[in-house]
Structures are given as structure tokens and as C-alpha cells.
């Protein structure tokens, strides 16, 4: 069982500041402060809590986040378990399973897939967006011209979520979503990743010569609370 804690954030007029690196850094720093504060301070209660079975994570990883690394496929539920930090020292005798788990524990690719999978689960459980609405663009990752996900059409739940945050969108173009997974709370790292994510979604809209909304999701593997903290940043 994996516990997902959802937090929502909102940024206005991000696109207007796209040429101002100082302003963007300010936005990233402000977000980082709130992300770290909410994830580490025990007095903060999350906006929503979801409990997800390991098996569901496995199946969503298979169908929504395209695990192209075949070796991790069969042990995906073990990697995604947030109850313990993967061991740092190598045990003397390793079974084959342990070996795979150990050597892949800290691979950025694996944690990235976990983050994307959890994001897809939230979209599906919470906003009822299914495979008919969402497309995963992992195939483009090496090329780096698209964000992680595109939402091609909406559901009433997702429409409400957008309207509730004052975002008007007609889905003429895919709605971009970028997921960044973080395994350690390091402020400098989070700022850099947020900056990169902002750049990715802005460049996406730049290609259509438009300013548009997007979701940036920071997935924090929180060993202190035995949970994954998903920070949904709704940008406009």
C-alpha cells in the first residue's frame, strides 16, 4: 500500500515572465519553499490523501508510464514502496531479485517512472481521466521537445478543477503536464528541476505561439512520512 498526499499550488502569469530569468528563479524558489515546508512540517495537512495498492501502481506503470526498461518490470511494486529507503550498502549475498532491486534503486529513470505512474493514478482516480483522454509522451523524452503527458480531452471533474482555479481551456491543443520526481529534500536541486520544468512547458506553448496553462507535478518520495507527496502546481 502506498500513501499519496496531494498538495495544490497555483502560479499566475508564468508565461509573461518567460524571458525574465530572475523572476522565474523567484517563482521556483517560492514554490520550493512551500513544497519543502508542506512536506516536512507535521502541522500541515495535505489537501487530499489517496491510498493506492502496489498492484495498481504496477499496472498503471505498465499502461500509462511505459516502462521501457524490461528488467524493472517485474519488481516495480517493490521499488515504489515508500515505507523504507532502499539500502545503501550491498548485502553479502544477493538473490537475483535483490540484486535487481539494489542496482536499480537509485536510478533516476526508475524514480521518474514511479512519479509519472503516481501522477497518472491521480489523474485517473481523482479527475476520472482515462486512456482515452491522456497520452504519455515518454517516447519523446530523449528528444526533449514534449513534456511528460498531454491531456487531449477533458472530464467534468477535470473541468471543475480547472474552473475552480480560474483556468479556461478548450483542449484545441493537448494540455501539457510535466512530472519531476525527487528522492531527497535538497532545495537547490528542487529549484533547478522546477526551473527546468517551467522551461519545458513554456517552450511547449511557445511552439504554438500561444500562452497556455499547464500542470507541473513534483513527486517527493517522503521517507519521513512513509508517503509520496504529490505537489500539483497549476500554472497559467
Amino acid at each position: 500500500m502506498v500513501i499519496i498526499k496531494l498538495y495544490h499550488h497555483r502560479i499566475d502569469r508564468m508565461y509573461e515572465n518567460r524571458k525574465n530569468v530572475d523572476k522565474l528563479k523567484e517563482i521556483a524558489s517560492w514554490l520550493t519553499y512551500h513544497i519543502v515546508e508542506k512536506s516536512t512540517n507535521p502541522t500541515h495537512t495535505p489537501d487530499e490523501i489517496l491510498r493506492i495498492s502496489d498492484l495498481k501502481i504496477n499496472s498503471f506503470g505498465e499502461l500509462y508510464a511505459d516502462k521501457w526498461i524490461e528488467d524493472i518490470k517485474s519488481h516495480f511494486d517493490k521499488y515504489s514502496n515508500a515505507k523504507y529507503a532502499p539500502p545503501l550498502s550491498v548485502p553479502r549475498s544477493l538473490t537475483n531479485n535483490d540484486h535487481i532491486q539494489k542496482t536499480k534503486s537509485f536510478s533516476g529513470d526508475v524514480s521518474g517512472v514511479i512519479g509519472e505512474t503516481l501522477f497518472a493514478i491521480v489523474l485517473s482516480e481523482h479527475y476520472q481521466l482515462t486512456y482515452e483522454h491522456i497520452a504519455h509522451f515518454r517516447a519523446h523524452k530523449s528528444i526533449g521537445i514534449y513534456p511528460d503527458f498531454g491531456i487531449y480531452s477533458s472530464t467534468p471533474e477535470f473541468d471543475d478543477a480547472l474552473k475552480g482555479r480560474g483556468i479556461n481551456f478548450h483542449f484545441q491543443y493537448p494540455f501539457p503536464c510535466e512530472v519531476k520526481t525527487i528522492t531527497t529534500i535538497d532545495k537547490g536541486n528542487i529549484i533547478a528541476r522546477l526551473h527546468k520544468a517551467i522551461g519545458q512547458v513554456q517552450n511547449y506553448w511557445e511552439r504554438y505561439s500561444l500562452s497556455g496553462p499547464s500542470i507541473i507535478c513534483v513527486c517527493l518520495r517522503n521517507f519521513l512520512k512513509n508517503s509520496y507527496d504529490l505537489h500539483f502546481i497549476w500554472c497559467e
Binding site: R18, V21, K196, G199, N203, E206, R207
Partner: peptide
């Protein structure tokens, strides 16, 4: 500038030229 800021600005500039 930090490396990520520099990369961001270059990408933005290239992107505008492509468009």
C-alpha cells in the same frame, strides 16, 4: 548565470527562431 538558467535562455532563443 546558473547552468540551468543559461540552458533555459538558449533553448528559449532557439525556440523562437524555429517558430
Amino acid at each position: 548565470l546558473k547552468k540551468y538558467q543559461r540552458e533555459y535562455l538558449i533553448e528559449l532563443q532557439n525556440n523562437q527562431q524555429i517558430i
